[in-house]
Design a protein around this nucleic acid. Structure first.
Lengths: 183, 183
DNA sequence: TACTGTCCACCAAACAGTTGGTTGAACGGT
DNA sequence: ACCGTTCAACCAACTGTTTGGTGGACAGTA
């Protein structure tokens, strides 16, 4: 039983790495199975179809990205903390965001993937909304909540593929929010 | 001769559409050739290899995106004009940006594609740098030039796949730049 | 006018390799 | 005897690319 779970995890991690390195364009089952030390037919014992394996990879990526938002700080500090955390993750584990981009692109075509990706983003979006609303109430700034949320998400999705600029970009974004206000 | 060029263009357009709709994951030569009304083997008369066709698509996309930056306006107005133009393009021709993202992702693995993509971005980056520097000199704002350039690029790359939020995001970004300053 | 050679666009067929997925038989533990 | 796990062998479909050959347009030559 533990073996089963372990091997499943090994397959998911192998699939994740393969997508990070070659994208879905070159994503094949046989090499995945081989790097887990089993035949490709045995892989179907753990994941009935290729799509099932990909869905598991999506879940794996999502689980790695939860919990960078805190609730025990002032809005401005919380924003900076959150952005710093993601920027650090982009630098330290860029593959995570490459795969995420690949999944985002795929969600445009596969409705099943679309709902999963959308669901994950929903939580993030809600946390950011709460953050900006709290900042408005405390007069820390005065901004359009929805537009600000989208701006932050757009920025983070944009730097996803460029780890080297991540730190500078999030600092610039934080400075803009803390130095001015925009309705 | 004109026939040759026409058919070449038809193939490039067909390839572009295919990538926009299915991504590189499902990008196959036979359907491309079929939608241009020729046999897949004849396609190799126009493009020796699959990679050659993809390179032509990259060039096609790039040529569509040049010239949204003007030089006859004040920095703040120029920034807003440029961002509005790109936001409008994202809404009107989202496929252009989907393919661009696909190419960006591909550039991470294919060095040949990487240099082409990098070269295109270079021009854009230079224009933005000039814009922010001019704004600093004229005291329109006081910002870190490099970080601001990266922020704009990151934002635009981030909204690339989400046409519905494009307008709100660029407005928010412009407002932040015009209401405050950040070093 | 008729014949010749050259060039180009084109296709049918085949190439050799790969794809995701299935089957049946074997193995080890309970 | 049973159950979960494993694999070799296999399948049909498909991959990018190559080959051999057809037919038409054009220019030069007799």
């Amino acid at each position: 039983m533990a073996d089963h779970v372990d091997r499943r995890q090994a397959l998911i991690r192998a699939a994740f790495s393969a997508i990070a390195e070659r994208g879905f364009e070159g994503f094949r089952l046989r090499p995945i199975a081989a790097s887990a030390g089993i035949d490709h037919s045995t892989l179907h014992h753990y994941f009935a179809t290729k799509e099932d394996l990909i869905a598991a990879v999506l879940e794996h990526v999502t689980s790695q990205l939860e919990g960078t938002m805190r609730t025990d700080m002032e809005p401005a500090a919380r924003l900076r903390h959150h952005l710093d955390a993601i920027a650090a993750a982009i630098v330290e584990r860029p593959e995570l965001f490459v795969v995420l981009d690949e999944l985002d692109l795929r969600a445009r075509r596969d409705p099943t993937m679309a709902v999963d990706v959308r669901r994950d983003e929903q939580g993030w979006r809600a946390a950011l909304s709460a953050l900006f609303e709290e900042g408005n109430e405390q007069r820390a700034w005065s901004v359009d909540v929805d537009a600000s949320v989208e701006l932050v998400i757009a920025t983070l999705k944009g730097i996803r593929l460029h780890p080297d600029t991540a730190a500078a970009v999030v600092r610039q974004l934080c400075d803009l929010f803390s130095s001015g206000d925009a309705s």
